[in-house]
Design a protein around this nucleic acid. Structure first.
Lengths: 222, 222
DNA sequence: ACAGAACCGTAACGTACGGTACGCTTTGGC
DNA sequence: GCCAAAGCGTACCGTACGTTACGGTTCTGT
């Protein structure tokens, strides 16, 4: 159990073949959940189990590599910070909301979050082994915060937003956008999220956020 | 695999002994997560595995019974619908928020949600077997909605609240209260929630909700 | 008091799966 | 063209655990 963990710098030390294998694992994860077996991955990827072990160390290593691989594919472009007015700020927020809803309702995200949650239990983490929960959190909720906060700050600088704590403001936005969607999906609730519904939710969440933290007409939340 | 499933009417067909066994299973679930083994439950509960199988059918039956047993213990008293003014409505909402935050941050809830999420995957549900995710959802998020909506409706009747769709209003409240807390906890993020912090969050969420849906001074959300 | 049911503790069985070993084929450098 | 490295496919091993079986003990009804 060694080489595959470039730990901090996520990926790109991966062969094309290795990426293909991880894609196979990812597909299998979506189809079968944590039920995923080494033999199944090997068969699906048309590689030998020995190779899997040589590349990823053990089952956990494969899972970790898979999650990181998917994470590395998600990197979205940062928002352009041009002339900021209410319209563009609103558009940006709606964009974030809509993107986030699409992510958390995707099969892949659901599958990944499921395994990560399953592995986050009070199990004895061997050494300081990077656990899946932390990775998912880092590339999900925290990555979103890192990308959104600058926008919020810019909005405040431009006198469009009002808040004392960017983190708190972000969490409010997060709550308004996600609401009960993620937990319901993770618990297996069928929840049809059409593009139209997502667009509507994004707009609603954005309006609510502006109502709470907008500079004009704003009642001071918190 | 048969008798233990009273399916719709949750519990109370349970022996004291059986409740004790389920409590043991519950404790073990909190300690070990889904790693839970039949042998471990039998040993912890000082009963034989044969008895476990006779009572609960199989491992899934035991898990289901455990989740239902815990759910049956949570039943909270409905709020008194006396003279409703802004103060008492605010107090009720804060109470709900605070209770909910306490629930979702409790070890028991986290453990239960973890197993339920783990079992909610694309696994072939045998027959129409009640799955854990549905049970948790039903006794968690949906139970909360059932208890909160009458309060919201009463608030609207009293002219204190303003909304067109009680379900949507509930979900907004839910989002403002829970934000990223549950997913972070499920993913293993250490997140200290002191009573003070919970109280503060409950008050903040309530104020934000009132800002969005309060009748006076209210900017129209949605 | 006694028969039978319920139950405890433990041993035994079967299987699924993580991990390893090995023989054969392909590939890339010389 | 040759050889070693990399990789495929498969067989194999050990173990953990769900499930069943069974002998002994306690409880219950008559």
């Amino acid at each position: 159990m060694l080489q595959a963990s470039a730990d901090i710098d996520t990926s790109e030390t991966l062969t094309e073949r290795q990426k293909a294998v991880l894609d196979a694992a990812l597909r299998l994860l979506v189809e079968e959940g944590d039920h995923l077996t080494m033999t199944a991955v090997a068969r699906r990827a048309s590689c030998s189990k020995e190779t899997l072990y040589k590349w990823f160390g053990d089952r956990d290593g494969l899972l970790t590599a898979t999650v990181q691989w998917q994470a590395s594919k998600v990197r979205v472009a940062p928002v352009d910070r041009k002339g900021l007015d209410l319209a563009s700020l609103t558009a940006s927020l709606e964009r974030f909301a809509s993107d986030w809803l699409k992510v958390i309702s995707s099969d892949t995200s659901i599958a990944l979050n499921r395994v990560a949650v399953g592995h986050a239990g009070p199990v004895k983490r061997k050494d300081g082994k990077d656990d899946l929960g932390a990775i998912v959190l880092e590339n999900g909720r925290f990555a979103l915060a890192r990308r959104l906060k600058p926008v919020l700050e810019a909005g405040r600088q431009a006198g469009l937003l009002q808040f004392s704590d960017a983190e708190a403001a972000f969490r409010t936005f997060f709550g308004l956008v996600a609401r009960d969607v993620q937990i319901r999906l993770l618990l297996g609730d069928r929840l049809e999220l059409t593009d139209a519904a997502i667009g509507g939710d994004a707009a609603r969440a954005t309006q609510q956020f502006l109502a709470l933290h907008g500079a004009k007409t704003g009642p001071q939340g918190l």
